[in-house]
Simulated scan of single mutants.
Amino acid sequence: MGTEARVASCLMRVSDLDRSVNFYCDVFGCRIAIHESDAALLITPDGFQIYLRSHEASSTRGIGDVGVEQIIWSVDSDDELQQIEQRLRAYYPSTYSNTVNGISFVDSVDPDGIRVLVTYPTPEQLPREVIDKRLR
């Protein structure tokens, strides 16, 4: 049936490029592949690409605006989840964590107020059976 496509990268508009680059590198261990005056390409430890583009912050989205609302991260161990939670709390003290149906969630925001959700175990380790209410 042809080739299989897979998600390899995403584009995020941010209000302060350097602040966002520092956040994603500090919290998630991304490395900087390209850094220009108005854009950067970050690579996650597993090779996913995050393009950050500086853009004036907008408090609301227009009715016709569609696209990526958030990225959900998953980690391979509870220790790793706790370490990321601590790093997120350094940026956003109101970071929240809980466990539902055997899945632990850490819920926070990035420097632009974009929601950041981290889960353990990964979907490969524990396939999802329901869509959590926080994703609705």
Rank of each mutant, 00 (worst) to 15 (best):
M1Q: 10
T3I: 14
E4W: 04
A5Y: 06
A5G: 05
V7T: 11
S9W: 04
S9C: 07
C10K: 05
C10F: 01
V14F: 00
S15F: 02
S15D: 11
D16Q: 13
L17V: 06
Y24M: 13
Y24F: 14
C25K: 15
R31C: 07
R31E: 14
A33Q: 15
A33I: 15
I34F: 11
D38W: 06
G47P: 06
G47A: 12
I50L: 12
Y51G: 10
L52W: 02
S54K: 01
H55L: 13
H55Y: 04
S58P: 01
S58Y: 02
S58Q: 14
S59N: 09
G62V: 04
G62K: 11
G62R: 12
I63G: 09
D65M: 09
V68H: 00
V68D: 00
V68W: 00
V68I: 12
E69A: 10
E69V: 11
Q70A: 12
I71G: 03
I72L: 01
I72G: 00
I72V: 10
S74H: 14
V75P: 02
V75M: 08
S77W: 02
D78T: 11
D79C: 08
E80I: 02
L81A: 07
L81R: 13
Q83P: 02
A90P: 00
S97W: 03
N98E: 03
V100W: 14
I103E: 03
D107F: 06
S108Q: 11
P111G: 03
G113Q: 10
I114V: 08
I114P: 00
L117C: 06
P121F: 00
T122G: 05
E124C: 08
E129C: 05
K133T: 12
K133P: 03
R134T: 08
L135T: 04
R136G: 07
R136H: 07
